[in-house]
């Protein structure tokens, strides 16, 4: 039954389509200009660019937290405003007065679930990010990496179709960042949410993503679209492999070209 309703044409539809998307604040130069983009369902896409290229703004537009100045966002798979979208910020952005479990339960409480139901699902989500024992800890009692795990659990507790991440690991140390990257990929493989991951790290992009969109500033636009065809799971060995180095070199070159052009234009 279920297989019949899904024609091959349906499967080809992107999860998200941006057409001519632009954003400007007041009369200043546009932050984003004419972004055209299809995001495949269940894909892991990284937005790579220098600060000020509008990648965070792009994420906020997709989340509906800010309105576009031109163009639009389509949800070809029909979800629209009702799509389950989650957001992970650069800071963990936890409520300091609430325990980890209550932080994670927040989106469910806002949807009207009872405290008991929300608590049960929050406990599961915390276990999924390896924090089963920290349910009753307050944010101040947790390390930076653990707080970010709570933040990810809160994003995943609603079983989102689309996960937006805005430089989530930028403030963490290298070892913690690698562990969280591994765990994020594991969760992504298990739950298959579409992921848009903003970063300014070439290596993070290459390790995580199937597709890297390199962005250029003034005005913010996509300057290169690179595929990273390496299979998952991507193990720590991948970080030292020849293909990893090759992809990193290509992404670095694309980013360098972008910055060169920006300087010429300026």
């Amino acid at each position: 039954m279920h297989a019949e309703t899904k024609s091959p044409a349906d499967d080809a539809r992107p999860a998200l389509r941006l057409h001519g998307l632009s954003k400007r604040y007041g009369s200043a130069a546009p932050v984003l200009a004419g972004i055209d983009l299809d995001i495949a369902p269940h894909s892991f896409v990284s937005l790579l660019g220098p600060s000020g290229c509008g990648k965070s703004t792009l994420l906020r537009l997709v989340a509906g937290l800010t309105a576009p100045s031109g163009g639009g966002i389509e949800w070809p798979r029909g979800a629209g405003r009702d799509a389950r979208v989650s957001f992970v910020f650069q800071e963990p952005t936890l409520m300091p007065w609430a325990t980890a479990a209550r932080n994670v339960a927040l989106p469910l409480r806002l949807q009207g679930l009872t405290a008991r139901e929300a608590r049960a699902r929050a406990t599961e989500a915390l276990a999924a990010v390896g924090l089963a024992g920290a349910a009753d800890a307050y944010p101040r009692e947790l390390s930076g990496g653990m707080k970010m795990r709570v933040s990810i659990a809160r994003a995943l507790v609603t079983q989102p179709e689309l996960l937006l991440m805005d430089e989530p690991f930028a403030a963490l140390d290298e070892i913690t960042r690698q562990k969280l990257s591994d765990d994020l990929l594991r969760l992504w493989q298990a739950q298959r949410f579409t992921t848009l991951f903003v970063t300014h790290s070439v290596f993070e992009s290459v390790f995580l993503a199937q597709r890297i969109l390199v962005m250029a500033p003034r005005p913010g636009r996509i300057s290169a679209d690179l595929a990273v065809g390496e299979p998952y799971p991507r193990t720590p060995a991948y970080r030292t492999s020849a293909p990893y180095a090759e992809h990193s070199r290509r992404a670095s070159d694309a980013l360098a070209a972008t910055l060169r052009d920006a300087e010429v234009a300026a």
Binding site: R60, A63, G64, L65, V85, S86, F87, F89, E91, T93, M95, L106, P107, L110, Q111, T158
Partner: peptide
Amino acid sequence: ADAHLLSLFRLYRA
């Protein structure tokens, strides 16, 4: 109230 938390509440249509 933290601006990011306010964004989060808007995202979940609180």
